[in-house]
Amino acid sequence: MSIKTYRRKLDIKSGRVDLSHGAGGRAMAQLIADLFHEALDNEWLRRGNDQAAFDVAGGRMVMTTDSYVISPLFFPGGDIGSLAVHGTINDVAMGGAQPLYLSASFILEEGFALIDLKRIADSMGAAARAARVPVITGDTKVVERGKGDGVFISTTGIGVAPPSLDLSADKAKPGDRVIVSGSIGDHGVAVMSRRQNLSFDTEIVSDSAPLHDLVAVMVEAAGPDLRVMRDPTRGGLAATLNELAQRSDVGFRIEEAALPVKPGVAAACELLGLDPLYVANEGKLVAVVAPSSADIVLAAMHGHPLGREAAVIGEVVADDHRFVQMTTGFGGGRIVDWLSGEQLPRIC
């Protein structure tokens, strides 16, 4: 379909989403063609079907889905569009897989500025192209004003893992090493710095990034000696380690001094009474690796731009209580527990 068939061009500069953009008529078709297809363009979308067909290669299929409801929509180092691509790619990649395709579903609030929507779609397209993982099918819905928060995006990802690899949260064994791929807390601090009632100046930008290339390097280096991989998003590193401890029926012992934390993140957390261990990441992974392969994996990670600051932060231990214990930088011991409720700022 060519744009000429429409009476008026989509007014991206000053137009807004209205209910007709979700009504299934011409306005919706125009929004999809002029805004989404334009930004995400690829051979599947160009065919204009309600589904995308592709051949399946041999191996283990990996599939995931995730919704993005972030506030604010734009933050230093990214926006909801790039996040929706990176987050889902990473969930596929944490299965040791190479992501192949994404789908994207948009829930738009009536009144949302088309210029912002275009910015988000363009950012999504750029992220998908850079990661070589196209968005091949999608959906758009519009809800009445007040029933959404601008834009919600839901993405599904599909990928293939080598048949020999079976990464799973229940596979950590005592003695295994714990590796993080880089500094923790960057994303959460960058987002918080732009929250309406909390804005502060920081040089920290979100670490939002696709991790599948880094994962490929790690799989290449260690193969089945990789036991578990996770991207510590909401709840931070603390939530991830506690979840692994539960699933694998083990404990963890980590060293605070070994945790990579940027000074800007440490300072912001100090100011707000937060702990970087609980702050979200969007471009970092935690790997549990058999001790014999830890050095090889670490060396391989150091050779990749997203793993340059990778570090061994501790090890898996036998523990009936499944505690995540940490030797503090000060020299004492403490638990790193799950987060309770939301991480709230301290009063004094």
Partner: peptide, 25 residues
């Protein structure tokens, strides 16, 4: 801390929350 009955379990500065979160091992 997830289901506090008393106030000492709520605030990070409360004796119960601090002991539960950091020291119960």
């Amino acid at each position: 801390p997830d289901t506090p009955m008393g106030s000492c379990m709520v605030s990070a500065e409360g004796a119960c929350a601090a002991h539960w979160t950091y020291g119960r091992f």
